[in-house]
Amino acid sequence: MVYEEPGTLAVQASGLAKHYRGRAGTVEAVRGVDLRVTAGEVFGFLGPNGAGKSTTVRMLTTLMTITAGTARVAGLDVAHDPDGVRRRIGVALQEAGLDPRQTGRELLALQARLFGSTRAEAATRAQELLVLLELEDAADRRIKGYSGGMKRRLDLASALVHEPEVLFLDEPTTGLDPASRLTVWDEVRRINGRGTTVFLTTQYLEEADQLCDRIAIIDAGRIVRQGTPAELKAGLRERRGLAVDPTLDEVFLDATGRTRERVAGEVQEVTA
């Protein structure tokens, strides 16, 4: 196991586990996950249905208790200081929790007030985020009239209100058309370029290949492959003696022991 120097890790998990009591006995959803996410990178977290991907993310974001192991996010212990962790992270879930009756500006200003900003500070922060996410023209329209891509960008803005050190994105482009997906990619790059660490779960292998500095693949509750996209491709190429680098899709299939028939449409967020 490789450890970076103290102070460089945005996310650190050791032996992280989550067990449930089910009708058939104990269900081990996550079984000893080790993760090291360096501050400032875009980290991709991939896995097939039921692999433990979302369960891991929910533990890291304080939304679910930890059965065993330890996790530190933004330098704080998740189990012992969940409130502190929540103040340092932003979370944009797959289903955006947006009030359709509000305007984009009202939503962002309210979020800022909830994090302790004064009315003037909240108005200023809302305007900054509207500019950052290129939503100025729609700022004073009700959210119910926003397109899917605009709602995704507004949800990103909402997660950034308190300037989090780590931003967790749960399948941010699921259901978007190709043009909107590319726009969200640009926003993720821009957010990361301003210094925010991004922890990204996605069902799109191309998305992970384009955005992520490093990737971890989880299957059956354990990390089965980890590295940069280039390292993962080169490793599979060498192991199989291929003439050219494989795609990240092929790396995923190899790591999880799935076939193209089994994996088609399957890589979605676990609901456990």
Rank of each mutant, 00 (worst) to 15 (best):
R36V: 10
A179H: 08
D34A: 05
T196A: 11
L156Y: 02
V57E: 04
E187T: 13
Q12G: 07
L16Y: 02
E41F: 11
L253P: 07
V33R: 08
S180G: 06
F115W: 15
E5F: 10
I215E: 06
A159P: 05
V37F: 02
I89W: 08
H162C: 14
D245E: 14
D209M: 08
R225P: 00
L232D: 04
H19E: 15
T228H: 15
L167R: 13
A230S: 05
V244M: 09
V42C: 12
L108A: 07
D83M: 09
G75S: 12
F252P: 01
L133A: 14
I143Q: 06
E261F: 10
I223Y: 02
V131F: 00
S158P: 04
L16Q: 02
Q203W: 01
T201W: 08
W185S: 06
E207T: 06
G69T: 01
E206F: 04
D99M: 03
D155H: 07
L132S: 03
E28P: 03
D99Q: 03
A138R: 10
V30R: 00
A24P: 06
A13M: 00
L135Q: 05
R119I: 02
E261S: 12
V263Q: 02
L114I: 14
V37P: 02
R260D: 15
L160Q: 07
D99E: 00
G7S: 04
R152N: 02
A24H: 14
R240T: 10
F45H: 01
R152C: 00
S147M: 10
D83I: 12
R87H: 15
S147A: 14
S158H: 06
L205M: 15
E238W: 05
E5K: 15
E136W: 08
T197D: 07
D177E: 00
Q127D: 13
A255L: 03
E207I: 04
A179Q: 14
L76S: 08
T70D: 08
F252R: 06
E206D: 14
L108S: 15
V85M: 12
E165I: 08
A92Y: 11
A220Y: 04
T26Y: 10
